[in-house]
Nucleic acid binder design. Structure first.
Lengths: 341, 341
DNA sequence: AAATTTTTGATTTACGTACATCAAAAATGG
DNA sequence: CCATTTTTGATGTACGTAAATCAAAAATTT
C-alpha cells in the first residue's frame, strides 16, 4: 500500500496537522520539525495522491490558450484541437479559455499576456511570435509563478517552461534530404516557398534546409525564397511565375502554410514539368495532392498531440510534478502516400 | 459546476442510495425507477468522477503484460519500457505484472493467457503470435470481460479490444517507396532481410513492400527473402553471401530485428559497393549506422508510446470509458539522419 | 386484508487530502 | 519565573463516490 499522510505523521512522530503544514508550506513549523517531517517523507517514499488532493481542493486548472487568428488550415486545425480539448474539460478538471490574437501582432500578443498577470491561472500556452517584447512578457508571467508553454513556435532564450512543437531546423534538414535523395543526383534549381521570414519556425526550417542542401547536394541550386504570406492566390502566382521563367526548377520545398495555391500552380504545369515537391502540414489539400502524386512528401506536426501535450505539461508544472519527457517530445511526421493516417 | 450523484437524486426524485444502485448496477431497483434515474443522468449530463470513484473504491488496476523472451534490441527495449511503467505504477494506480513467454511458442502463450482467466485483472496486453489457438485464448479472456490489447503484433479476427502498434503493411509500403525513390530510377536487384515469415508483422511488411515495388518500381527486382531469425551472426553471413554472389544488388530492406549483423556485413563491403538501405527499429546500432551513412532510413515504432498507450486503453476499457482514438494511434516514425531524436 | 417479498430511503463510514479552528504545549523574551 | 509568542496537537468538515446497514414503504402474494 502506498504510504499516506498518516504514515508520515507516525514516522516523524508528529501530528497530522504538522505534516499538513509542511506539505502545503503553511507557516508555524519550526525548522527542526520541518526537517524531521521532510526526512520521514523521503524515507517512507511518500508521494502525494494528486487525485485525492484535487478532490479535496475542488481544484480545476484554468488554462489559457493564446492562438493567432487567420484562416490557414493549420491554425484552423489547431484551434479546433483546442476546442476538442474544451469538450474533455470536465473529466480533466481543466477550464480552457481561448484567446485569439492577430497573427504576428507583437503588441497585441504582449497585451494578451500581460492581461493574464495576477489572474488565477494554472497555465498559459501560446503560439509565440519571436520578439523581445514577447519574451519579456512571458518572463513576467513565469516570474509570477505561472507555467508557460510555447506551442508550435518557440521563443528564443525565454524562461518558458516547455515547448510543445517540433524541431524546425531538423524539419528543414529532413526536407532537404528527402528532396535531394528523391531527385537522385539530378542537377537543377530548387525553389523554396515560405509564408514569411518574420516567423521563427519558417526561418529555422529554411536554415536547416539550406544547410543540408549546401553540405550534401552541390548539384542543386537554391533560388531566392518566395514569400507567399500563407495566401493561396499570392503563392499560386509566385510559383507559376517562377516555373515559367525558370525551366531548370526541378524541386520545390514549401515550408509554410497555405499550400492550396502551390498545389493549383503545380497542377497547371503537371504533365509537362516533372517536379519533386516536399511540403509542410497535412491538410485536406496536401493530403489529396500526396495521393494523386502532385506532392511527394508531406512533413507534419500533429496539432492534436501538441495541444494535449501542452495541457499535460501545464497541469504537471502547476502541481510541481515531473513530466515524462519522452512522451511529450513532439515528433516530426513524415508522410508519403503509403503511410497516411 | 459538474453535476454530482446528489443532483441526479434530486432530479430523479429518488434517494442517493437508489442512484448508487443504478450507477453500480446493484440489484433491488424496479425497472421504472431505474429508467427514471437513467433519464435524469442523461438530462443533467452527469459524468462519473473517475478519480473520486477510484479513491472511494481504493481501486488499483492490475495489468498484465505478456512479452516474448529473446534478446533482440527491440524486445529488450519493450520490456524496459514496461518496466519504466511499473515505476509510475503508484501514481497511476496500476499494478503491472510482466509475464515472459518464449518467442513464437504458441502453446506457452495460450497457457499464459488461460492462466489469467478468472483472476482479478483489469487488462492484458500481449505481443501476439498470430495463431488460431492464441486467438481462441484471447477471445476466452474477452468473453470473461477482461480488456485485451495486442501490442506490436496484432491478432487476425480476434475480439481484442485494441491494437497498440503500427500498420505493418503501410510500413512495408513506405519502405518500398523510400528505397525506390532514393534509388532514383536506377535498375538492379533488391534483397529483403526478415526475421521469420512466421510472424505476422514481418509477413505484412513484406507484403506491403512487394506490392509497392511491383506497382511502382518495375526496374527493381526483388530477390528471395533472407530469413535471418533475428540472429546477428546468421544475418551477417546471409547478407555477405548474397552481396558477393550478386553484384546487381543495389538496395536492401531489413524488416526484422537484429540489424547488428546486417550492419557489420554492410561495413565490410562499404567503400566499393554503393547500397541504399532501409531498416526497421531504431536502436543504438541502427542509429549509429544512420549517422555514418551505412543506412539511409530507419523505420521505427516507439515502444514507449506503445506501452503507455496500451495502459491508457486498458484502464479506459476497464472503466467503460471512451479512448481518444487519435491519441492512441501508433505512428510509423521515419528517421533520416537529420531528424533523429 | 394480512403476510410476505421487493423496493426504496436514510444514514453512516470510508478513501486520501486540504483546510480551518481551538486548545495545549513548548520556546522565547524580559 | 512569569508573560508572551510561537509551535504543535486534536479534531472536525469537506470533496465525490462506493458500499454497507437498517428501517420504512410499496408492491406482490396468499
Amino acid at each position: 500500500m502506498r504510504p499516506t499522510v498518516h504514515d508520515i505523521a507516525a514516522a516523524a512522530g508528529v501530528s497530522l496537522a504538522t505534516v499538513d503544514r509542511v506539505l502545503n508550506q503553511r507557516p508555524g513549523v519550526r525548522m527542526v520539525t520541518r526537517e524531521k517531517v521532510e526526512a520521514a517523507i523521503r524515507e517512507i517514499g511518500y508521494i502525494r495522491d494528486v487525485a485525492a488532493a484535487n478532490l479535496a481542493k475542488g481544484r480545476v486548472y484554468p488554462l489559457v490558450f493564446i492562438v493567432p487568428t487567420g484562416d490557414n488550415s493549420f491554425m484552423h486545425g489547431l484551434r479546433s484541437e483546442v476546442h476538442q480539448a474544451t469538450l474533455r474539460a470536465g473529466i480533466e478538471r481543466t477550464e480552457i479559455r481561448i484567446v485569439e490574437v492577430p497573427a504576428f501582432d507583437v503588441p497585441a500578443l504582449v497585451a494578451a499576456l500581460d492581461a493574464l498577470r495576477g489572474q488565477d491561472i494554472s497555465g498559459v500556452a501560446l503560439v509565440a511570435t519571436d520578439a523581445p517584447e514577447v519574451r519579456a512578457a512571458v518572463d513576467r508571467l513565469v516570474s509570477g509563478r505561472i507555467p508557460v508553454v510555447t506551442l508550435v513556435s518557440d521563443l528564443t532564450d525565454s524562461a518558458r517552461h516547455h515547448y510543445a512543437g517540433i524541431d524546425n531546423i531538423a524539419a528543414g534538414r529532413t526536407a532537404a534530404r528527402l528532396l535531394g535523395r528523391f531527385l537522385g543526383g539530378r542537377k537543377g534549381d530548387i525553389t523554396v516557398l515560405a509564408g514569411s521570414m518574420l516567423v521563427r519556425d519558417h526561418r529555422e526550417r529554411l536554415q536547416g534546409f539550406s544547410a543540408v542542401m549546401a553540405e550534401e547536394f552541390p548539384g542543386l541550386r537554391l533560388l531566392p525564397v518566395l514569400e507567399g504570406r500563407d495566401d493561396p492566390e499570392r503563392a499560386r502566382s509566385l510559383v507559376s511565375k517562377a516555373l515559367s521563367e525558370n525551366r531548370d526548377i526541378i524541386g520545390i520545398y514549401s515550408l509554410g502554410a497555405g499550400n492550396r495555391g502551390l498545389i493549383a500552380a503545380l497542377k497547371a504545369v503537371r504533365p509537362e514539368r516533372e517536379l519533386t515537391v516536399v511540403v509542410h502540414e497535412l491538410t485536406r489539400h496536401t493530403r489529396a495532392a500526396l495521393v494523386d502524386g502532385t506532392v511527394d512528401a508531406v512533413l507534419n506536426q500533429d496539432a492534436g498531440h501538441e495541444v494535449r501535450s501542452a495541457i499535460r505539461v501545464m497541469k504537471a508544472k502547476a502541481d510541481g510534478q515531473a513530466v515524462i519527457a519522452d512522451q511529450e517530445r513532439i515528433r516530426l511526421d513524415i508522410f508519403l502516400k503509403d503511410n497516411l493516417p
